[in-house]
């Protein structure tokens, strides 16, 4: 990626504005959810089933979230993380600041177009395999701000989402249910299938 030499804050502003406008133009249609493989019947080789089982168990039992929480749903996520609704029992108490060490992005909050390039970049920088849980009404479809001039109508415009957890904000139990759904989805992955 080329690093442009920018010399003044005016040029930085224009560059950021161009970037955001281009992202808006590119994100007119939602990205399809990565779950078409769920419908297919996979022929499972008996040798691979145990490898699959171990790998999927390891991946779903230690999902580490990346720090990317734009708005109020973050507080419900923090509540879920804390002692009453414990996320540590799922192996998820670690929230990694660096996306390279994380494999789950829980998008907790309304996303504005101004922040969208940053979130997309953090998602791109996460190491495979990675999953996304869209938490909250604003993450699913833009919520009550869906028709606003500055709000992205749902994270699936810019990144592919695996599990949608509605709510404004979703209760910790709802978020844990969403995380369990994601764990069941990961349990069904297979090394033979394409795309993850």
């Amino acid at each position: 990626m080329e690093i442009e030499e920018v010399y003044s804050s005016r040029q930085l502003d224009e560059k950021e504005g161009r970037q955001i406008n281009e992202l808006i133009d590119r994100s007119q249609q939602p990205i399809p959810d990565p779950d078409r493989w769920l419908e297919e019947e996979l022929e499972r080789n008996i040798l691979l089933t145990s490898v699959d089982a171990i790998l999927n168990w390891a991946r779903r039992s230690s999902l580490w979230t990346v720090v990317a929480f734009p708005a109020c749903c973050a507080f419900e996520f923090i509540t879920t993380e804390a002692s009453r609704f414990d996320l540590s029992r799922f192996g998820m108490e670690i929230i990694r600041a660096s996306p390279r060490q994380a494999d789950l992005m829980i998008t907790a909050g309304t996303l504005t177009w101004k922040m969208a390039p940053q979130i997309k970049r953090i998602y791109d920088q996460m190491a495979e395999p990675k999953w996304v849980i869209a938490m909250g009404a604003c993450a699913v479809s833009g919520g009550i701000f869906a028709s606003s001039y500055s709000v992205v109508p749902g994270y699936n415009r810019i990144i592919p989402v695996d599990v949608y957890v509605p709510g404004c904000p979703p209760r910790p139990e709802a978020l844990i249910y969403g995380i369990r759904m994601l764990q069941e989805k990961i349990a069904r992955q297979s090394l033979i299938a394409e795309d993850k």
Partner: peptide
């Protein structure tokens, strides 16, 4: 898995592009 892309190979700066 090994799926490189330009953003992944660049430096992390909380979602921004690095300058300098």
């Amino acid at each position: 898995p090994y799926k490189p892309n330009p953003a992944k190979n660049s430096t992390f700066e909380c979602g921004m592009e690095t300058i300098g």
